[in-house]
Design a protein around this nucleic acid. Structure first.
Lengths: 107, 107
DNA sequence: TCAATCAATAGCCAGAAGGTTATCGATCAC
DNA sequence: GTGATCGATAACCTTCTGGCTATTGATTGA
């Protein structure tokens, strides 16, 4: 049972997949065809990546006739932001502890 | 030729490896033995993970006699923080563009 | 000196992951 | 209705990855 961080890191770890997500962030909603033409891999590969991005909550799909439009869901990045600031928080806490220790030793 | 984001995401994608890094962030410097005892995998596996974390710049090693102490290098997370805020930035820019468009349409 | 301990490396294996081509269902254009 | 297009799925293959055991090198302690 992978947690939210697992899914996010794993999903964004692949360069091709992350490039697709970045493009959606930069340029907004796009069809599978448009994404495929700039991706360097085949259409099925792109579809598979989009499926994983959707499972991770990183993109939304919208069907319109026979084409599917995908767009980035930026809110899905929150756990990642939380994680990094948490790590930074631990760091600072330990640093503060060290400062305290040094201060006490100084007395 | 993978870029900095690639390396960071890929390195942090594995749960076991990320758990080791988190532990180093939370609790500070630790020996390989200490990390192994709480990791659920074998010592060679831990050493391999530490090697990858070191390659990614996420940890530092310090040799002391026959034991090796590892500690987190939090600065290595910067590219990741930059990336997320960049994505958020694109999002807001596009949102502003949409607002502008709506405003112009309104006139 | 010799046995024990710590961590890294070597070599191997199973499973996951990303890619491909082929195909299918659905929609659109004629 | 028929052929073309769009995107998802199926089936398959290859490579990468993370795990293991065994071993080695270095250091320590008896």
């Amino acid at each position: 049972m992978p947690n939210a961080h697992d899914v996010l890191f794993r999903t964004l770890a692949d360069p091709t997949r992350r490039a697709i997500f970045e493009r959606l962030c930069r340029e907004g909603e796009q069809t599978v065809g448009a994404l495929t033409s700039k991706s360097g891999v085949s259409q099925p590969a792109v579809s598979k990546h989009l499926g994983l991005l959707r499972q991770a909550g990183l993109v939304r799909d919208r069907h319109e006739g026979r084409q599917t439009h995908y767009s980035a869901q930026l809110g899905a990045l929150s756990p990642l932001i939380d994680w990094t600031s948490q790590m930074a928080g631990f760091w600072e806490t330990r640093f503060d502890d060290l400062e305290d220790l040094l201060k006490r030793m100084d007395q």
